[in-house]
């Protein structure tokens, strides 16, 4: 048994209209400092958080889309995206940002940790997580 716990952040809200997406991201960034295994799951309108090409210049709001791309640097291992939620919104993986991950010690690299999962795989992710934070 190790002390490393598996944390899963569940995101179900669209970005910008409410503060949930940004709050979740901030908590992830803070929590990632504690050397736990951190993954994110995007379900329902949460999948909109990863749509690329965001431009908030006319809204007077911070564009936090680029910040998701740093999650790999913060040691986040997986960004799971629910397939059914994506399909219901007419989106595909091509519409989503890519997030790279690299182990700085072993130099092991993964080009993109954004992964589309079906319900069965998602159930597995929820089951194997020690803690689930919901936003």
């Amino acid at each position: 048994m190790s002390d490393v716990k598996k944390f899963l952040y569940l995101n179900r809200r669209a970005p910008y209209g409410t503060i949930y997406a940004w709050e979740s991201l901030e908590v992830v960034l803070i929590g990632a400092a504690f050397d736990q295994e951190v993954s994110l799951m995007f379900v329902d309108d949460g999948v909109f958080q990863l749509v690329k090409g965001s431009d908030t210049s006319e809204l007077d709001m911070k564009n936090f889309m680029p910040t998701y791309r740093t999650l790999g640097d913060y040691g986040v291992r997986h960004l799971y995206v629910d397939k059914a939620s994506l399909e219901a919104r007419g989106l595909t993986q091509d519409d989503l940002i890519e997030v790279a991950w690299e182990d700085w010690e072993t130099e092991e690299e993964v080009d993109n940790i954004v992964e589309i999962v079906d319900s069965g795989q998602a159930i597995g992710v929820f089951e194997e997580s020690d803690v689930v934070f919901s936003f």
Partner: peptide, 18 residues
């Protein structure tokens, strides 16, 4: 400029090393 956040010290240290 690239990520719209100031990195945590741990991340800064690694990224500077790289």
């Amino acid at each position: 400029e690239e990520y719209q956040i100031a990195p945590a010290v741990r991340v800064l240290t690694k990224a500077v090393g790289k």
